[in-house]
Design a protein around this nucleic acid. Structure first.
Length: 424
RNA sequence: GGAGGCGUCGCCUAGUCCGGUCUAUGGCGCCCGCCUGCUAAGCGGGUUGAGGAGUGAUCCUCCUCUCGCGGGUUCAAAUCCCGCCGCCUCCGCCA
């Protein structure tokens, strides 16, 4: 949720931010009106309650007729207190509802517009031209089958479309990537975490995934729980309802968890292979820091993501996502997209967002800075989403005979220099 | 899954049966002061936390909320009733 004081003091800034995302500012007016009503209702309730309390004390001390008289009057007051309390509750709920529906204020620097209005910040590495090397490119599905690494047929048989088994070197690849990612995270001072991938509604809502993104979230039948689409969710809720020691910041975590996504609304796109699947494992970086520090930290997360892709010897580009394509929580987002040879284009491998105080206000995570207590900032960034990384590695480092050269940095973790086909 | 117990202001704890002066007791710890060659001990004082208002800024004053969480009863709830959550012990089942 955005800072209510910003809304109160500078509503035009919020309106401008809404416009930048291509959204109407109707919610802004609604929230402003609700805020006024809420404050009035609170004042009303507190006054009545205070009156009731002091009368209660008189009742306790009074005797006989005097007591009966007081009781009659205080009974009346009690009804008024109840009414005022109910009115306050409603006003508070209306205000919350309006405020929660306002997305984070996009950064000044974020490009305006929608999905296609991203700005390419840089290209790193040269996309491999397999044709020029005299190699007929095989896609990851074919390579995965030849290497005995990816079993899509059985994935579909057992679990349905968009499921897969990683087998043999495929499974080895997953663990090697996870270990490399964790080692990288440790080098940068991150605390490793294995996070639960089922959460209560509070965590889901607090991270902003039950709004516009709710269609993509799996809910557990018969239980008030959700499967997470990223460990950003449990990690954002990790310190919920806590006041952190300001001196302990930044808190840097690298969390491993399975991720589940319905992929509703993506019917027909990326149906082949393991680019877009209902379940995958991921190592995600998650940081708690101050808002002031968050911008530099965002760059740091991006740098770590870049260095990881470089360790894997992948060609990629970095894009600055446009305001309209930011999630509800994000103030700014950078994606790293790796070159996928058989698709002839860059595909998202990692994504890092600065959510400033948006999530911590919802989840009530604050920091104590001397005398002052205020919300902290959260940031998240993919370190390694397994299936897409496997796609990029297989396709990028394939050789004429269908074998795959293993990037140097991964070799110690995989114990192999090259992945050899098991079938022709 | 079954049975029982517990949840109070950083930690421990009194209070809950029998509702009101609980503005929550005491200890530990912590903070300030005194004493002191230094340290320790001793003595005195302070100390729940959060949100908000008063001319937004270290102070002061006031209000609300806070005894696991949410409801209910009542003029009044730490205290009575209901639901939920968490922890512990035992049993069953299980990776």
């Amino acid at each position: 949720m955005i800072d209510p004081r910003v809304l109160r003091d500078d509503p035009d800034r919020v309106r401008a931010a809404q416009a930048k995302r291509g959204l109407s500012d109707e919610v802004v007016d609604r929230a402003l009106a609700a805020d006024g009503a809420r404050r009035a209702a609170i004042a009303e309730y507190e006054a009545k309650r205070s009156q009731q309390k002091s009368m209660g004390k008189q009742v306790a001390q009074a005797q006989g007729e005097e007591k009966q008289e007081l009781l009659a009057r205080t009974k009346e007051l009690s009804a008024e207190v109840k009414a005022a309390e109910a009115a306050q509750g409603e006003a508070e709920a209306a205000w919350q509802e309006a405020l929660l529906s306002i997305p984070n204020l996009a950064a000044e620097e974020a490009p305006a517009g929608g999905e296609d209005d991203y700005v390419v910040l840089e290209h790193v590495g040269t996309p491999r031209d397999l044709q020029a090397e005299g190699i007929t490119p095989r896609d990851h599905v074919e390579l995965g089958r030849m290497l005995g690494a990816i079993d899509l047929e059985r994935g579909a048989k057992v679990s349905g479309s968009r499921f897969y088994f990683l087998t043999g070197v495929g499974a080895e690849l997953e663990f090697a990537l996870v270990n490399l990612a964790n080692a990288t995270a440790r080098e940068h001072g991150f605390t490793q975490v294995v996070a639960p991938s089922m959460v209560k509604p509070r965590a889901m809502e607090g991270t902003g995934f039950l709004g516009q993104a709710a269609d993509d979230v799996y809910r557990i039948e018969g239980q008030d729980m959700y499967l997470v689409g990223t460990s950003e969710v449990p990690m954002a809720a990790f310190h919920s309802e806590e006041i952190l020691d300001g001196a302990s910041l930044p808190l840097r975590y690298a969390a491993f968890s399975p991720c589940f996504r319905k992929e509703a609304g993506s019917h027909g796109t990326d149906t082949r292979g393991i680019i877009r699947v209902h379940w995958f494992d991921k190592v995600e970086m998650f940081v708690y820091t101050t808002v002031e520090e968050s911008f530099a930290e965002h760059q740091r997360l991006l740098d770590i993501e870049k260095s990881f892709l470089e360790k894997l010897e992948l060609a990629y580009r970095v894009i600055d996502t446009a305001a309209g394509d930011l999630g509800l929580s994000a103030q700014r987002k950078f994606d790293c997209e790796a070159w996928i040879p058989t698709q002839g284009r860059y595909r998202e491998l990692t994504s890092t967002s600065n959510c400033t105080e948006f999530q911590t206000r919802r989840l009530d995570t604050r920091g104590r800075f001397g005398q002052e207590i205020r919300p902290v900032a959260t940031l998240n960034g993919t370190l390694c989403a397994i299936p897409r990384t496997i796609v990029a590695i297989l396709e990028t480092h394939q050789q004429a005979d269908g074998s795959v050269r293993v990037p140097e940095a991964l070799r110690p973790y995989l114990g192999r220099d090259v992945l050899e086909p098991v079938t022709a």
